[in-house]
Amino acid sequence: MKRALFLAALLAAATPAVVYAAAQVMPRAAVDVREKSKQWPSPQGESWDAIKKLPDFGGVWSAPLPGQDGPRAPPNPVPSYTPAAAAKLKAFNDSKARGENTQTDKANCTPFAFPSSMGIYPIEFLFTPGKVTVAIETDSQMRRIYTDGRPLTDDPDPTFQGTSVGHWEGDTLVTETVGLVPAPQMEIVAGVGHGDKLRIREKIRLVAKDQLQVEWTYEDPDVLTKPWTTTRIYLRHRDWDIQEYNCAQNNHDAADDKGRPSMRLDK
């Protein structure tokens, strides 16, 4: 019995050690990144003092949606589609006439991808040395924009918010994003999806008291024949907080595999 207890104790004590030892071997990539980070020039926002010089993006920002009152940017231009994308869009619209694709996988709680994620519910900007973090209420997501001078990763893993780097040009935060999840999780416009080479350039700046303008320029040779720029105006709410949002908490509105709506009525 004593021996069994001793062995159990030994095992319990050794387990963390084994895990720790394994961790020393496993995360070589992480160590390499840390080493590499010392080479990045950290040109902007490298210290808390530097952050004090940045424009005031404080508060919670919310964009009025179509149909709602409030200052808004002029209507977006019509995208110039490649023939393949135009055909896809037509097929998509035709399917809507049949009652299909009237809703997206968002109805099944797939998170919103960048930049749609920045639009349904409010966002908040957090400045820390070398990084701007966007706290996104929709699906309780985070977007990290590295401003420490690192280059964009060559071949990033696809993620819902993409991989972003940015820098300040005067009072404008200029960013570049690649590595977004494929359609249907992320689509430039519903029905057309996007290609592997999608790149989104973004400009964020204050344009009036408590008004922030965000410009997104989409470049995607598989879908667009020329870059397409959309603009959105956000209003500042100093007295708001970002709230929690978990879509799966109580979703009654699933879409079927043809994008047709349903509604679950069981209690």
Partner: peptide, 26 residues
């Protein structure tokens, strides 16, 4: 007051990047 970010219930113009939790078609 309508300067708010919202929801489900709003349809989205064709040239606007996709956004809405679900449609109101039902």
């Amino acid at each position: 007051w309508t300067g708010l970010a919202a929801l489900a219930a709003l349809t989205v113009a064709a040239a606007t990047p996709a956004a809405a939790h679900h449609s109101t078609a039902m």
